[in-house]
Structures are given as C-alpha cells and as structure tokens.
Design a protein around this nucleic acid. Structure first.
Length: 587
RNA sequence: CGGGACGUAGCUCAGCCUGGUAGAGCACUUGGUUUGGGACCAAGACGUCGCAGGUUCAAAUCCUGUCGUCCCGACCA
C-alpha cells in the first residue's frame, strides 16, 4: 500500500474527547473516528488490525474444534423472555419495535439463539462435543460508555458456546478453550493472566477472566506473587483481615452511650470515642428483589467497620442482582433511626424489625466487645457480642479483600492490580439447556440435558488493550502479529526516477513478493513529518532510504522502539525477513 | 440516575466576567523558498458561536429551557 493512496488521518494534538493514552493514540494514529459516544468507525488501519486479531482468534478457536457460525444480531424478544434474561439483563438490552409493534432485541450475546439451535439440531450424544463460535457486532446499552473502545455501545465480540453430554466432558471443553485463550492473548503480544471470576447469580462452577494489567483498567485483580492465586476482587478471598476481630470479653451487657452527630465509622474512630474500625459493626440496609415474581424485601448486612461490602458476593448470597441501598426514609420506617446510627442488636429492634433478614460477614464471627449503632439517632452501643446480642440469619463472605491480606493457599501477602478484562470463559452447566429444552439421548437411550459452556473475547477492547500496553512517547508500537503493516518504507525524497525512489520501489516489490505487508510512504513531505507519522502509527519495522546512506550502498533498518541499523541494499530484504523471524519468535 | 465541567473554524483553544463588525495556533488551498525527526514567507478558503426561547436599540457574551460531550460516583450475564 502506498501512503498517498491510503487514508491515515494522523493528528498532532489529541482531541478533547479522549482521556486515556490508548484512546488518544487510537485517534491520533488514524485508527478510528468517533461517530458519537460509544460508537466508532474503524478506518483502514484500524480495520486491518481488527482483522489480524480476529484471524488469530479464528485459528486458535478452530484448533480446539470450534466451528464458526453467524447468528442474527436482531433477535425476537420471546427467547429473551424464555431464558429469563429479558428481566435480568434488561439494563443492557437495546430493544426495538417493528411496524407491527413486535418487540426485538439487539444481541449483547447469543446464548438464547445458540441454545435454540442446539435444541432443534442436537439429538444424540454422538453429535457432541460441539463448539460453535462467531465474531460479530454486539450491542450493550451501557450506562456510561467510556475510554473509546473499552466500553462502547456497539463492539466486536467473539462468542463461543460448547455443548457436551456430561459435566466431565464440559470441563474438558472448558480447559481446551482456556488454553486457546492463553495462546490467543499471547499471540496478540499481550501480557495477560487468567483470574478466578465471579459466577454471580448463575452460580456456575468455573469461570475465569483473562486480564491485561493496566492502570486504566476497570477491574481490580487480587493475586499472590507465587502465581498460585489470582482472582477478580469480586470473587477474591483471603485468610481474613490482618487485624483479628476483637474478642475482649468484659461480660458487660450492651451499653448505650451518647454520640451526638456521629454517623460514621470515622466519627467513632476519632476522639473522644477512639473505637478502632475493627471494633465496630457496620450496618447496611439493602432492598432486594429476589426474583421477578417476588416482592422487594429489606436485607440487613453486617460488616466490620474497617471492611467494605463486596456487592458481587452479596448478590451471590441473596441470589439476585436486583438490589439497591435502602433510602433514608425506608430505613427510618423500619428501624426508627437514620443511617449512621443503625445496628442489629436484638434488644434495639422493634417487633416488626425482628423478622428482618440479617447477613453477617465471617470476619465478625465470635467478635466481642464491639460497638454499633443503637437504632436511635445520636446513640451507639458498646460491649456488643455477636453471638450473644445479634440474631444472624446467615453468615457469609461479604467483605472486599484488601491488599496485604494473606493468601489462603500460600500464606503470602496478596497484591491488588488494576486490569482490563479482555476475555471470559464460563462453565454454564444446564441453565440454558433447561430453558430451551436442549436434550439428547445418551448411550443408554436416556434423555439428558446438554451441558454448556460460553466463552467471550472483546475483540475491539483487545485492540485497544494492546495499544494501552504497547506504546511510547512517540506513539503506538504494534506487535508484529497484529500490525496493520509489518514494514514502512520511508524514502526521504520521492522524486520519480531518483535513486532513492527507485530503491524504495524495488524493496517494496521484493518485500511484497516475499509475503511481507509493506506500507510505502510516497508522500512528498519533509523527512521529519514522515518519521513522526511512522512512529505514531506504530509500524514494527521502518526502512529508511536517503541519498547519504544510499551513496554508501546502504539503507536504514529501524525496528520500532529499537536501534537504527545500516544494512547493505542488497541485504535489506534478507535483513527485514530476519528481524520479522526474530520478532515472531520473541512475541 | 446523582454531582461537576464544557459546547466558538476539521483539531487544540482564546474571547464571555464588564453586551457593540468572529479570533489565534495547527490542519487545508495557491505560489515561492526549503528538505535526515511534526519547516519558512506571502496570499487565500473555512463559523447559522450546540439548539430553542427570553431580556436588550444591540447577545458568542446576560437569563430560562433543551440537546450533546467529558469527568467523578452509582450501575454493570
């Protein structure tokens, strides 16, 4: 490709719409342009990179038996009602009506469609294992699209679905996909690692997310340096708080004391009270809708004062993602006190509030000598013993792990790292097979449910994650495997027929013939402009051709981010191929 | 959905407080000089100042509403 014939609108300055580096580089390097918030046009360079990533995905998923299909993005809302996700996923669903007022859904993912297909087509255990995948546009009504392609309303996703005749077989499918994912992200040149992920209300047995460490990521990952443990913070557990629960036993009954205006953990920690966070019980009230049919009910959550609620764990424990903090009015009508003065000590509860569901975090188990709200504004209680004074409906892990806490398996301190989620593998079980009656006859002639897995990769997000991880002050540094072109030939003068241009043309022809993708910068611009653009766009290799070096029979070979090296003209193709071979190995 | 900021040329922004003929840099067009890391000179083209009301002799500027964008939070199979 000749630069003058392509369309690469580079920018010197970053548009104001971009906040993070990778987003700025996407725009400055002419990879994408925004149509509106969360919607982007891929320009020629961007599309080439996208196709490279898709190609890697296709190869690796196919190599573990994946069969590519293409499903409709426009889906009848009935199947979403059938799966129950019309309700549970309604927040992210784009819905539309046609001329006869029938409702449609723009697909954020395709479990409903693929399971409908499987229910109709799979009838025997002999047909499995089966693994279907597609690479297609997905839609999500994001509350707040941001960071360019990272969180968009419309994006490209590879989604795959496996069907097996037993749980054991499904685990094998899962492991194959897990391994394929590792190869995919490694080939994309990404530093990445799998972490245990929250299975949420689906409650599947296995789920891993593939994470790319980056400060601009939207996930927190908890990990142990030993490499033996890594989990999304929504799922992560530890050996517990570093400071153990207070067990100081005075034998005293709970005692009310005056705390005017104190409505926070901090307030009690300060003088004159001096109650440490670990000696306090934090009381939160949530309004939970357990399922579509059920009424909303209040749930009390108890945590240690120095802990934060982990909402994903809470959702798992109550079995619903439909919940919200109770309002001040709702709380007052239940407990006769306002947030900041709440507690679950039985003696402070009215008859009606005694029936409230109380969930308590394990870190509070056996805690004594605690302080909590008295359900009376301006008062707290001290000498509270959990086992004696609080009626707990259910104990569970509800706290968010903090950096420095000890790893359950190794005993070493855990660390926390921000990361971008680029892939997710999920053992689904029979959730969808049940809803869509996807059954088969086993070897004994018995009807069984297909055991499913689902597997996603955010292709467009992966593209941006690569930029986020691979750049310098001059621009993008594309890993060879995904680069729009491997080589950029930069003749310093473009006078037709000149030795410089003739050499450039010859090398272009020879490299292309050797199977190398080449961009020839034939623009009549000053060298500085062309160097800056080549660096910004991020071609892995630049071949500079100028009069001075050509007089010595040389051209300049410069790997992006590497050292410039003079090579003989006649060796140039061979040298470029050698650099490509070396890069292919090291990436 | 709550809080905050911002909408002026393709891009980055000034002008607004204190109302009075629409600005700069970059990019673009033409000519010339340049030519090894985002050149220089000259000439030129490019705007319903987000939109709609209102106040006023007069609104980019003041007021109200509205739409959009960005940030923080909430939310997020």
């Amino acid at each position: 490709m000749r630069w003058s014939r392509s369309f690469i609108p580079t920018l010197k300055e970053s548009p104001a719409e971009a906040e993070i580096l990778s987003h700025k580089l996407l725009l400055r390097a002419g990879v994408v342009r925004r149509l509106t918030g969360g919607l982007y046009t891929f320009l020629p360079l961007g599309l080439r990179v996208l196709r490279k990533i898709e190609g890697i995905i296709r190869e690796e998923i196919s190599s573990v038996g994946g069969l590519e299909v293409l499903m409709p993005a426009l889906q009848p809302s009935e199947i979403w009602h059938q799966s129950g996700r019309y309700e549970t996923a309604s927040g992210v669903l784009y819905k539309a009506r046609d001329r006869s007022n029938k409702e449609w859904v723009l697909s954020p993912t395709a479990e409903e469609v693929i399971t409908t297909l499987a229910a109709g087509e799979i009838s025997s255990y002999r047909q499995m294992p089966l693994n279907f995948f597609q690479v297609s546009v997905k839609f999500r009504d994001e509350i707040r699209p941001r960071f360019g392609l990272m969180r968009a309303k419309e994006f490209i996703m590879k989604d795959a679905y496996s069907f097996d005749c037993s749980d054991e077989a499904a685990t094998i499918s899962y492991r194959k996909m897990f391994a394929a994912y590792q190869r995919i992200f490694n080939r994309c040149g990404l530093i990445n690692f799998p972490v245990e992920a929250d299975t949420g209300v689906i409650g599947g047995s296995h789920s891993h997310e593939f994470m790319v460490p980056a400060e601009t990521g939207e996930n927190d990952v908890v990990y142990c340096d030993s490499g033996q443990y890594a989990a999304n913070i929504e799922k992560a557990t530890s050996a517990g708080p570093l400071e153990p629960a207070s067990k100081s036993e005075t034998g005293d009954a709970p005692e009310k004391f005056y705390t005017p205006g104190v409505t926070s953990i901090e307030g009690l920690r300060a003088a004159p009270f001096n109650v440490s966070g670990s000696q306090q019980i934090k009381t939160l009230i949530f309004m939970v809708k357990p399922s579509v049919a059920d009424a909303t009910k209040a749930v009390v959550v108890l945590l240690r004062g120095d802990d934060q609620l982990n909402e994903a764990k809470f959702a798992g424990l109550v079995g619903s993602t439909v919940f919200r903090p109770a309002t001040g009015d709702e709380i007052f009508s239940m407990l006769n006190a306002h947030p900041g003065s709440l507690g679950a000590v039985t003696s402070t509860l009215s008859t009606s509030s005694l029936t409230l569901t109380v969930l308590a975090d394990e870190a509070l188990r056996g805690a004594r000598g605690m302080t909590t709200g008295a359900n009376e504004d301006g008062f707290h209680l001290r000498h509270v013993n959990m086992d004696r004074d609080v009626l707990v409906t259910c104990w569970g892990d509800l706290r968010t792990v903090k950096a420095g806490e000890l790893c359950v398996s190794t005993g070493k301190p855990l660390k926390i790292q921000r990361a971008i989620e680029v892939g997710h593998v999920f053992k689904l079980g029979t959730k969808y097979s049940e809803k869509f009656n996807a059954r088969f006859l086993d070897a004994e002639g018995k009807s069984q449910l297909c055991v499913m897995g689902c597997y996603g990769i955010g292709v467009t997000r992966t593209l941006q994650a690569i930029i986020e991880q691979s750049n310098d002050k001059d621009g993008i540094i594309w890993p060879l495997a995904v680069a729009p072109y491997a080589v950029c030939i930069t003749p310093l003068s473009v006078v037709p027929g000149s030795a410089v241009m003739q050499t450039a043309e010859r090398l272009y022809t020879e490299l292309t013939a050797a199977g190398v993708e080449v961009m020839l910068d034939d623009r009549d611009d000053r060298p500085g402009v062309k160097f800056k653009d080549a660096d910004l766009v991020g071609f892995p290799i630049r071949l500079g051709i100028g009069e001075k070096s050509l007089a010595k029979g040389e051209v300049e070979l410069k790997p992006r981010g590497g050292v410039l090296q003079a090579v003989k003209v006649e060796d140039a193709v061979k040298q470029v191929l050698a650099v490509i071979a070396a890069k292919t190995l090291s990436e």
